[in-house]
Design a protein around this nucleic acid. Structure first.
Length: 379
DNA sequence: GGTTACGGT
């Protein structure tokens, strides 16, 4: 005989007994043990140590007991019948449909929006996602998303190849198809996904035309946004900006002019200023005016007629790359922007840094974004 | 696309 190894998750064993004489499944002598409990003091995942046998399990128990009876009678002509199993097929599931015991054995494919990726130096990363369906027992909360989204957020632990892929490609706000994830209950008693293989593909919003799962996710996102009054697609205008407060906007890339956001805003890129050894500067407008946060642009051609309607953003860290790839005249959405007086710049500007995806070119074909359609009309 | 399946603060 070769090595026979059984694998199981820590402290998650479930059991049932079969009585050949009674011909039925049982759980030992009568007792007062609770049938099922929500772990984590009632806030986590429901768990029962009692396995519920299905028809295939019971048939298998019967064939084993028949075999044993024949063995005792020294009749070894028949061997044990293996459990009849059809081909195992993984299914695409909503987060709300998943569970550690959901067929097949908790495995599933899913389509999600990334909210936050925590890179761990242990090499196993924590990913927080939503598909805008409820996530009972998940117990996730973080300042990285609105508290009202907590009930829709699921944590995934990324091991091995999955972690390597995610750390290279995944950014908050992006959509991904994740294949061969598995739902489990973690050691704290909360529901948690686990991904080991690098079967992770990014999806663009345009893919929704052919991808029904992404299309449905975007529809649920839109519904969730309208219900929760935090529509991340309904951006603030420059005229709504307050000095020192975060806001999100859509802008047009002009000259040295950009915007600020804490949610999302659309602005047209007017101008990009690149100087050696300096942070790149973006100049943006959404055509609304706000002299208290506007940048001074002098008599530059790209700023003509837009006095008091242009903002300046400096790009630090990972945000610098935007300046190399952005095209003048495109409409960008900008998140987590804060306009402040900058002594070095001698005026008001925002600084964007970090590794999060804060500046994204807008999909001008999206007709469900009212603010964006308004802006396009100017352009 | 078939087969696997463990885990650690």
């Amino acid at each position: 005989m070769g090595n026979l190894v059984g694998y199981g998750q820590h402290n998650r064993l479930r059991w049932a007994a079969y009585s050949p004489s009674a011909g039925e499944i049982h759980y030992g002598p009568p007792n007062n043990a609770p049938k099922e409990e929500n772990l984590a003091d009632g806030f986590g995942a429901p768990f029962s140590p009692f396995y519920v046998a299905d028809e295939i399990d019971i048939q298998h128990c019967i064939s084993i007991s028949d075999w044993w009876r024949k063995l005792l009678a020294k009749d070894l002509s028949e061997s044990v019948v293996p459990i009849a199993k059809g081909p195992i097929k993984r299914l695409h599931r909503l987060i709300s449909e998943t569970g550690p015991n959901v067929y097949p054995s908790g495995f599933f494919d899913c389509t999600v929006e990334v909210l936050k990726l925590f890179i761990s130096d242990q090499g196993t990363h924590s990913l927080f996602v939503t598909d805008y369906t409820p996530s009972p027992g998940s117990g996730s909360s973080s300042k990285s998303w609105p508290a009202s989204l907590n009930e829709y957020v699921m944590q995934f632990e990324l091991w091995d190849e999955a972690a390597r892929v995610a750390e290279v490609i995944m950014k908050p706000g992006e959509y991904y198809k994740i294949n061969n994830a598995r739902m489990k209950i973690n050691n704290s008693g909360y529901m948690e996904g686990k991904v080991k293989e690098g079967k992770i593909t990014q999806l663009e919003e345009d893919d929704a035309e052919s991808d029904t799962h992404l299309k449905a996710l975007l529809r649920r996102k839109q519904e969730w946004n309208s219900k929760n009054n935090t529509d991340v697609d309904l951006f603030q205008l420059i005229q709504d900006a307050e000095m020192g407060k975060f806001f999100d906007c859509i802008v047009e890339v002009h000259c040295p002019f950009l915007f600020l956001t804490s949610f999302l805003t659309s602005m047209k890129l007017l101008h990009i200023e690149l100087k050696p050894y300096q942070m790149p500067r973006l100049y943006l407008t959404d055509y609304s005016g706000n002299s208290s946060v506007a940048a001074t642009c002098g008599d530059e051609f790209w700023a003509r007629g837009l006095e008091g309607r242009i903002i300046k953003i400096m790009l630090d860290e990972e945000q610098k790359h935007i300046a190399e790839s952005a095209t003048i005249g495109t409409v960008l959405s900008v998140r987590k922007l804060r306009l402040k007086n900058n002594a070095v710049e001698n005026g008001i500007c925002g600084i964007l840094g970090g590794g999060e995806k804060l500046i994204v070119p807008m999909n001008l074909n999206r007709i469900d974004n009212v603010r964006l359609q308004d802006l396009i009309r100017y352009v």
